[in-house]
């Protein structure tokens, strides 16, 4: 009696372990397969390289707004973005987000237009993981406070 029940529970344990193993393999497999497809944006260089071959499909392009290129148009804004190697012209329809400005890191959604410019209808700002206070004054004030003892030691020396 006890032998059969323990056999049964053993078999159940194996089934449970098997299911766990299958789930883990499935998740890892899915991750590996998806890792090539979950690219959220293309760099300017990649986008320019695939301009001929992508057949006008919709994608996202990321780069920094080239300072001095931003121009308002009738129904949006026109500017250039760069990834440091290649530059692309963007023609955007609609209002840019409030943090849009010269040098801003942007992700634009749209497709290559006929005029070799990227026709965008959505701009997102891709912020990095660096955080700094704004004014030079406050920066000076904080470093200045640290400098006081340093000056004191200089004076003492």
């Amino acid at each position: 009696m006890t032998a059969t029940t323990s056999k049964k529970s053993k078999r159940r344990t194996y089934i449970a372990l098997g299911l766990c193993g299958a789930a883990i393999v499935a998740i890892i497999g899915l991750t590996v397969v998806l890792s090539n497809n979950v690219v959220y944006f293309r760099t300017v260089s990649e986008a320019v390289a695939s301009r001929e071959s992508d057949g006008g499909s919709r994608f996202r392009i990321a780069g920094e707004v080239v300072p001095g290129t931003v121009e308002e148009t009738r129904n949006g804004v026109k500017f250039e973005i760069t990834d440091g190697k290649k530059t692309a012209a963007i023609v955007h329809v609609g209002d840019p987000p409030s943090l849009f400005k010269d040098g801003a890191p942007v992700v634009c959604e749209g497709r290559w237009g006929a005029d070799a410019a990227f026709a965008s209808d959505r701009i997102m700002i891709r912020h990095g993981n660096e955080y700094e206070p704004p004014e030079v004054d406050s920066e000076k004030a904080s470093t200045g406070a640290q400098d006081v003892p340093a000056e004191g030691t200089v004076g003492a020396a």
Binding site: V38, Y40, F41, H127, G128, N129
Partner: peptide, 14 residues
């Protein structure tokens, strides 16, 4: 770290 995301990378545990 593995994929390109709109979300920034970790600030502390990057």
């Amino acid at each position: 770290t593995w994929w390109r995301t709109l979300h920034q990378e970790a600030t502390v545990f990057n």
